[in-house]
Each structure stands twice: as structure tokens, then as C-alpha cells.
């Protein structure tokens, strides 16, 4: 398995910075992973902390009525909540604790496989190192300095926190009559044209015309007196690329 930053091969002396990493499986399939940084992860941790705090607080009041026995039970619950919450959720819920679920994160192994018991236990045991000397200072610092945003626990356990890939929703294309592209287009170019038609609504008309003017000549678009014509024709090409469905 090899991790490499995506989109290599540009003329710049350094590879282009990106938040995506490409991971190649032994089968030769490229998986695109998006490691999650300190901000979203700390919010997710905050949510988890709040959930645990509320649950354990409620438990404390309920068990407090049972006297010493209740205190003992509460201590057991505290132990389980501290050590088990993260591990159980991560392993049994596809690497997602409730906080990570809300923030759209999940934990996986370095090689993209789902996290297992040993890695999860290790990365959560090492929270107690990351917490030093106060409030996750070590973890936060390593997270800021590591290119894949790993804290010490992640480094030791070989895990990675990534953004989950949500099922993509098909945005509505701009209404236009389909036009066949005048020349064969590569996949990348087809995607760019699609994106143009999909994001047409968020662009100002002037900007859309400006963009269309770039490809008027190569795509042999008709430049009629109507300034919207190239934009409409681009939308038409995108519609024909998208197909009927």
C-alpha cells in the first residue's frame, strides 16, 4: 500500500498541496481519502465529551440514591464510559462515534481498511499521552504538524481520521437543448463542462459568459449577437454528456 499526495506531475518544483491523499490498493485501485484536520476533529470530540458528560451526570444522580453501592456502580460506569465509549463505537459502528457521525468523520486504518479492535484500543489508550500536559496539547500540536493530521495515538495505532464520502447527489443541470460536443473530450474535460452546467446557478451571468468565452473558439461555439448564446451552448453540450436520465 502506498500513500501519495494526489494530483502529482505538475511543473512546479513541489507537488500541489491538496487535502486529498491517494491510496493504491494491491489490486491497483486508487482510493481517494480526505484526512480530517484538527478543527473538525476537536468539534467531534467536544460533542462526544458532551454526550458522555450528560449521560454520566444523569447516571450519577440516579445511582447517587443507592448510597455506596450506587457510587461503586457509578465508578464502573465511569470506567466503561472513559475507556469503552470510543472503542466500542469505533469498532462496532464503522469507525464513527456519535460526534464523528455528526461531523461526517470516520476512523480507518492507514491502508483504508475498517478499524479493528487492537488499533482502536491503542489509539484511544494513547489519548492519555495526547492529553498531556493539559487538554490535548500534545495531540493538538502533532495534529497541526502532521501532513495527514495524525495525533500520537493515530501514529502509534496506524489509523487515520477521514471525512466520510457521502453519496453524491445529482445537482440539476441548466435547462438547454442537448448539443453533441464538436470534438471528442477527455473525462476531465467532460467533468468540467458538467460542473459548469451544474454550478451555473451559483455563478453570476457575467462570470459565466467570461468562462464560456474561454472555450468559444476551441469548441466552435456560435457567437451570435446574443451574449448568452455560448453559455447556452455549453449547457447543451453538458446535457448531451449527461445523457437522458
Amino acid at each position: 500500500m502506498s500513500l501519495s499526495h494526489a494530483e502529482p506531475g505538475c511543473a512546479a518544483p513541489l507537488a500541489l498541496l491538496d487535502t486529498r491523499v491517494r491510496m493504491e490498493t494491491p489490486e491497483g485501485i486508487d482510493l481517494i481519502l480526505r484526512p480530517a484536520g484538527l478543527m473538525s476533529r476537536s468539534i467531534a470530540f467536544g460533542i462526544d465529551l458532551a454526550i458522555r458528560g450528560v449521560l454520566l451526570g444523569a447516571l450519577f444522580f440516579v445511582l447517587g440514591t443507592l448510597g455506596d453501592f450506587g457510587t461503586g456502580l457509578f465508578m464502573l460506569a465511569l470506567f466503561l464510559g472513559t475507556w469503552g465509549y470510543m472503542v466500542l463505537f469505533e469498532v462496532l459502528h464503522q469507525g464513527r462515534t456519535p460526534g464523528k457521525q455528526i461531523m461526517g468523520l470516520r476512523v480507518i486504518h492507514d491502508d483504508g481498511t475498517p478499524i479493528g479492535w487492537s488499533a482502536s484500543v491503542l489509539r484511544n489508550l494513547l489519548r492519555f499521552v495526547d492529553m498531556l500536559p493539559f487538554g490535548y496539547c500534545v495531540g493538538g500540536f502533532t495534529c497541526l504538524q502532521h501532513p495527514l493530521f495524525k495525533r500520537l495515538g493515530d501514529l502509534a495505532a496506524g489509523t487515520l481520521v477521514i471525512y466520510r464520502d457521502l453519496p453524491p447527489q445529482r445537482p440539476p443541470l441548466a435547462e438547454a437543448t442537448a448539443i453533441n460536443p464538436p470534438l471528442p473530450l477527455s473525462l476531465e474535460e467532460q467533468r468540467t463542462l458538467q460542473a459548469f452546467a451544474e454550478r451555473h446557478g451559483t455563478l453570476s451571468p457575467a462570470r459565466a459568459q467570461e468562462l464560456a468565452a474561454i472555450v468559444t473558439q476551441p469548441l466552435q461555439l456560435a457567437t451570435s449577437p446574443d451574449p448568452h448564446s455560448p453559455v447556452q451552448q455549453l449547457n447543451g453540450i453538458a446535457r448531451s454528456l449527461a445523457g437522458s436520465s
Binding site: 470534438l183 473530450l185 477527455s186 476531465e188 474535460e189 467533468r191 468540467t192 460542473a195 459548469f196 454550478r199 451559483t202 455563478l203 462570470r207 468562462l211 474561454i214 472555450v215 473558439q217 476551441p218 469548441l219
Partner: peptide
Amino acid sequence: TALEAWDIELGFRKLRQRVLGSA
């Protein structure tokens, strides 16, 4: 990038380069 579609501009420029360059 979202407002001005920088990525689309980049893609269009590459397309232009490819087609006009080969022409």
C-alpha cells in the same frame, strides 16, 4: 473558488490549450 468557478476556469483553459495547441 466556489463563487468564481476557478476550477472550471482552469479546466477550460486546459481544454483550450489542448484543442488550439493541437490545431
